[in-house]
Amino acid sequence: MQRPNSLGHLSVIIIFMMVMILPLLGTLLYSISTSWSSGLLPDGITLKWYTSLFADHRFLQAMMNSVLVCLGALLLTLVLVVPTAFIVFYYFPFLKPFMNFIILLPFAVPPVVSSVGLLQIYSNDVVTLTGTPWILLGAYFTVALPFSYRAIANNMANLNLQDMLDAAHLLGASTFRAFFTIVLPNLKTGLMVSLFLSFSLLIGEFVFANILVGTRFETVQVYLFNMKTRSGHFSSAVVVSYFLIIVLMTILAGQWGKKQ
């Protein structure tokens, strides 16, 4: 039902937006100001912080590292979770409650706790994964798992999997073929939405990246943390750049979501 938006509700939302946008607005202004020592507005406007940021090799490398490790982790998540969700829904539906339970584990075990164990397990003479981006792939898989599994599972539940697979079999397709020609294309929209949202989640991850890898493979979060002694204007430019990625990802997710 389409209601006219009431003034009361409208003002609540506008106040909410205005308050929540303050830290962002402050950071944005700070990142384009020459200096801001006093007064309502900065002393002057400049893009020099951005030019020096994008001339900083370390920053570009960190951006690259972040994007690489996030894409890698998402690819791993996709390759592992999609077949698993399909197998659970099609072959072993009685496992659904069990899956719903185990994907809660990442919520109960925060990254800092997992890091304690991961540091012990994967930094010895036999396996040395710490200090390399490889360990982040596994760790980020656990971060993205609950969200991507839920998204994929919800989409699967909306498909009439049993009948569609039966129909495909009768028409001569193997299960393998049916998975690629029917199941996967029908999950595409849901997968894209969850990919974009998971990307913004992962690119904001700091704890794993800092403890397990640190400066040896600096992500943008670790870079920002290590830049804390540089000028606030410079850090602001980093924050704004990072937030633009989130904005982009959220908008892309929204666009895909509308296709459904």
């Binding site: 937006m17 929540m20 946008i21 830290p23 402050g26 700070y30 990072y242």
Partner: peptide, 21 residues
């Protein structure tokens, strides 16, 4: 959409934004 973005705006960048503010 805004709430979705803000929900992902946490951790180190958020701390910096608050320091600036």
């Amino acid at each position: 959409t805004f709430a979705n973005m803000i929900a992902n705006f946490s951790g180190v960048p958020l701390a910096f934004a608050f320091v600036i503010l």
